[in-house]
């Protein structure tokens, strides 16, 4: 559906051309690029690897798997064989996949939605029944492994983001994906990235180096910690919010008030467990909800341990 390509293009930095796309979709007026910077570029990075990768960062195995998926379809990595997403002289399938508007990184949401729209058209235009079946399987794989697997928490993060345009965009994309997912028969196994993702590590069992990083990796913690969330944490707990990357900020909070920070994060994880429940295909939504609940539980235990330890330490001092 062209709708997916259009929605994908709108997660790019706003350009005047986006006004026509947004108007066609009955979305609120396109905001200034600065709003995109605040809401998307600096907080809600639209890359599957950020939400599905064990480090919570762009690239890595998740991105490589998308490249491999494209290669299996005979498509080059976007941005190499096509300008602006139009595969001009690529492999045979490229002629059928009209990926206009897709981004140049393979796991960018716009790339994935553009590919989905292209595959949809390609399926419809394919005359060979056998190839049509294969293409449909590819489409199902794309949705299950690389879209449905992370879109729940990602789109939830736009709720109450303060930008009506992006709130409406996320709601519409969620609605469109709901409809697609409802009409699609998915495999019984969970997406590979979810199956492979380790849970939040218990810092009491190792040296804790990985703990802060894992908190910021959604697939491990089950929750998304935006910069806005960290600012809110600092206000609520009265902590200094240091200027720097999120890991650095979070480490500074732990240094200032470990118990308070852990308790706040436990509450946040608990809320996420509720918020993501029911967002996306049932098994995936349940997985995210459960992962956040497990994190909330661990964080609560850690909070209690830190408090007990603090009391013990105070008694010893007296």
């Amino acid at each position: 559906m062209e709708l997916f390509r259009a929605l994908g293009s709108l997660i790019e930095v706003p350009a005047p051309e986006h006004r026509r796309v947004a108007a066609a979709l009955r979305l609120p007026p396109v905001p200034a690029p600065a709003v995109h910077g605040t809401v998307v570029r600096f907080q809600r990075h639209p890359y599957a690897s950020v939400y599905l990768g064990p480090t919570g960062m762009m690239g890595g195995d998740v991105q490589d798997r998308v490249v491999g998926f494209r290669r299996a379809l005979g498509l080059p990595a976007p941005g190499q064989g096509d300008f602006g997403g139009e595969p001009k002289d690529g492999a045979t399938p490229g002629a059928g996949v009209d990926g206009a508007g897709v981004a140049v990184e393979p796991d960018h949401l716009a790339s994935l939605l553009g590919l989905l729209a292209g595959l949809d058209r390609w399926c419809r235009e394919e005359s060979s029944e056998a190839r049509s079946v294969l293409l449909n399987q590819a489409r199902v794989t794309l949705v299950w492994e690389y879209l449905a697997s992370w879109r729940g928490p990602y789109l939830v993060s736009f709720e109450d983001c303060g930008a009506p345009y992006y709130e409406a965009w996320a709601a519409l994309l969620g609605r469109a994906l709901d409809a697609l997912e409802d009409a699609t028969e998915f495999p019984s196994a969970l997406p590979a990235a979810l199956q492979a993702a380790p849970a939040l590590p218990d810092p009491r069992l190792d040296n804790g180096d990985d703990f802060v990083q894992a908190l910021l990796a959604p697939v491990r913690s089950g929750m998304i910690l935006l910069r806005d969330d960290l600012v809110r944490l600092s206000r609520e707990l009265g902590l200094a919010c240091r200027a720097g990357e999120r890991r650095y900020v979070l480490a500074a909070f732990f240094a200032q008030d470990p118990a308070g920070t852990l308790a706040w994060l436990a509450r946040h994880a608990g809320e996420w467990s509720t918020r993501v429940a029911g967002k996306g295909p049932g098994r995936i939504a349940a997985w995210w909800s459960a992962r956040a609940a497990v994190s909330a539980s661990l964080l609560s235990q850690l909070t209690a341990d830190v408090q007990i330890s603090a009391v013990a330490s105070a008694k010893a001092t007296r």
Binding site: E12, V13, A15, E17, R20, G84, G85, G101, V102
Partner: peptide
């Protein structure tokens, strides 16, 4: 004319 502009972040 252009309906979908290119990927502006790259």
């Amino acid at each position: 004319e252009t309906f979908y502009p290119g990927a502006s972040r790259i």
